[in-house]
Design a protein around this nucleic acid. Structure first.
Lengths: 198, 198
DNA sequence: TTAATATACGGAACAGTGTTCCGTTTCGTC
DNA sequence: GACGAAACGGAACACTGTTCCGTATATTAA
């Protein structure tokens, strides 16, 4: 990865100080607004919260996805990095996969509307989809393959499809007590396991 | 149910002829537009296609859900009625459940954005969610219970949750070759099977 | 057939949100 | 302190949902 071209955290040299400051402010404001109003919150609301104009927000984050990615980058990275670790620490590849999926689900369900946005075909969200998948599918694939190799999981399922399936299951109006994404994800994982016997 | 109070097909007496005609026209126009632009199509587009004004469409179908329900009512009914029949005709309760779920998935994936709308928390779609679930959950429950009683499916899963899960899996930008809802639904059904045995 | 009335219609008008654009301000440098 | 480039702010435009009311039409009564 190129050193500091991304919209992350390190004050990139050659950028004006106020620009860097505003970017930070925007990130913080967005993070706050996202927990309150979800990732679909009106751009104006974020701009207002940050005390900047509309132009500023668009200049720093041309699409909504850029902003969302910037806000959650750390957590996505953490999730991605947890994969290999779990493969070592967990008892079996399947256990590792299960724990990792838990991590991913926890992440999604605690972010208002994130799962929705991930699959949304609305303008500005395609890049979000792309980032999440690019970053996490390889990790999932590693865990999945390991579980298949260990004979714990039947072959034939692709990581991409599994990830999207899990993401989809996490979509929903929040806190309907009758719907718990975790239970369905668990069902999915059950279905992944090898009946093999017969 | 009261005889002809619904927005269905029979020309209700005591309504002006032009009103009935317009309702039919709107239904037809909406059906056409839905296949092209999805169920989120701008109201104006539907009104234009039907050759009526905005007021007319809102008078006949106060919320978007009313319109969508009216358009798909027949198919939902057909799906609902297929349940008991399958229970008779299919070899086993599980087979019936499987076929019924297939029916449901086929219905959803062929309607642009319907699955999305079902779970959407946008204004005007709650009623859609309600209608589909009210109508189909009992049917699903019947099939599910039968399969559980036959020992083919483990107990503990609620029809409501299963239905929503399936609906969610059908969400997605259309025709990404790497994502086939059917495969994941199949996985879910797999997970439903085989009681823990050991 | 015509007049009266209730019903339904059309579309302008208002509101909320995304997105662009450009005159103005501020920063960094000389 | 002055200058040029970079960044800012927010007005303006586009698109969509929703409401409201003056007008047109169907129905019924005379």
């Amino acid at each position: 990865m190129s050193p500091e071209s991304q919209s992350g955290e390190v004050p990139a040299r050659s950028k004006r100080a106020d620009a860097v400051r505003n970017q930070q402010t925007l990130l913080a404001a967005a993070a706050e607004v996202f927990v309150t109003s979800g990732v679909d919150a009106p751009i104006r609301e974020i701009a207002a919260r940050a005390g900047v104009g509309m132009g500023t927000i668009y200049r720093h984050f041309p699409t909504r996805a850029d902003l969302v990615v910037a806000v959650y980058r750390h957590q996505v990275e953490a999730c991605a990095e947890a994969g290999p670790n779990l493969l070592d620490s967990a008892g079996s590849p399947l256990a590792a996969l299960r724990q990792w999926v838990d991590l991913f689900v926890d992440f999604l369900v605690t972010k208002h509307g994130l799962a929705n946005a991930l699959q949304s075909d609305s303008s500005g969200f395609e890049a979000l989809h792309a980032y999440f998948l690019d970053r996490l599918v390889p990790v999932c694939e590693q865990l999945l393959d390991a579980a298949v190799d260990a004979g714990e999981v039947r072959p034939g399922t692709h990581a991409y499809e599994l990830m999207r399936g899990i993401g989809n299951l996490c979509i929903g109006r929040d806190s309907d007590p009758r719907y718990d994404p975790r239970r369905l994800v668990e069902l999915l994982l059950q279905g992944l396991q090898r009946p093999q016997s017969s």
